[in-house]
């Protein structure tokens, strides 16, 4: 047992920069996909026909591609088109595209579940489109948006491990590097599991707080 603790303590410093990379990638992907997903989700519901058609095409295509294929497609497929991205940015772009398609779905689901009458009442007191979204629709949609979205965030953290496929050294890769040297996998998988769990548990707790805050809106 003491040996196990020793091995874990030994490994911690090497995992730190990998952990940092995991958090950085997750953060960028979550933030970018949130902004892009909500904007495109609103476009999907309220936009003109051509825009709605385009966004639908985009999300269906992306959600139909396995994320592994997406990562390699972005990394190898873009340079011939003139866009040469580093491993880090290629991985982030691929993950962001994938997550954005999901966020568009969450947004669509949350907003379209709001009764039509809300939009009509908002129109009838003279609010313009942006105001209607901001003061009437979004506050109500957020409650329905949060649970699947937070789930998605924890998925994004777990999924960020895929950046190692492009050689980016995240927590997963850092773990493998230490194992590659010491040949002792158990303590490291344990430590890795604890670290991923810690990240996702804090996220889930945060989500519970957020959900409670919006719970007063009765259906």
């Amino acid at each position: 047992m003491a040996q196990l603790i020793d091995a874990i303590v030994y490994a911690i410093p090497y995992l730190m920069s990998g952990l940092g990379m995991t958090l950085l990638v997750s953060l960028i992907v979550v933030v970018l996909s949130l902004v892009a997903g909500v904007v495109l989700g609103v476009g999907l519901i309220y936009g003109p026909l051509s825009l709605r058609w385009l966004i639908r095409l985009l999300t269906d295509s992306i959600r139909g591609i396995p994320i592994l294929v997406l990562i390699f497609a972005v990394y190898y497929g873009l340079p011939p088109l003139g866009l040469n991205l580093s491993s880090f940015w290629a991985a982030v772009l691929a993950l962001t595209l994938f997550k954005t398609a999901q966020v568009i779905e969450y947004t669509r689901g949350a907003v379209s579940s709001i009764p039509r009458g809300q939009m009509e009442a908002a129109k009838s007191i003279g609010l313009i489109f942006g105001q209607r979204l901001r003061y009437v629709i979004f506050p109500q949609a957020t409650r329905r948006f949060l649970p699947p979205w937070v789930n998605g965030v924890t998925d994004a953290v777990k999924g960020s491990a895929l950046v190692s496929l492009l050689g980016v050294v995240d927590l997963m890769q850092a773990i493998n590097q230490v194992i590659g040297r010491t040949y002792e996998p158990m303590p490291l998988y344990l430590l890795g599991a604890v670290m991923y769990f810690a990240i996702n548990y804090s996220l889930s707790s945060l989500s519970r707080v957020l959900e409670r805050r919006y719970a007063y809106i009765k259906e």
């Binding site: 009764p115 009509e120 009442a121 129109k123 009838s124 007191i125 109500q140 009765k218």
Partner: peptide, 24 residues
């Protein structure tokens, strides 16, 4: 346009069969 229309709607008030109060 949107802004014009909103201004016109502010001149009429509507009350709905299903109330449509903002629940939040």
């Amino acid at each position: 346009g949107e802004v014009d229309l909103a201004a016109m709607r502010a001149e009429t008030g509507m009350v709905f069969q299903s109330f449509n109060l903002f629940p939040h």
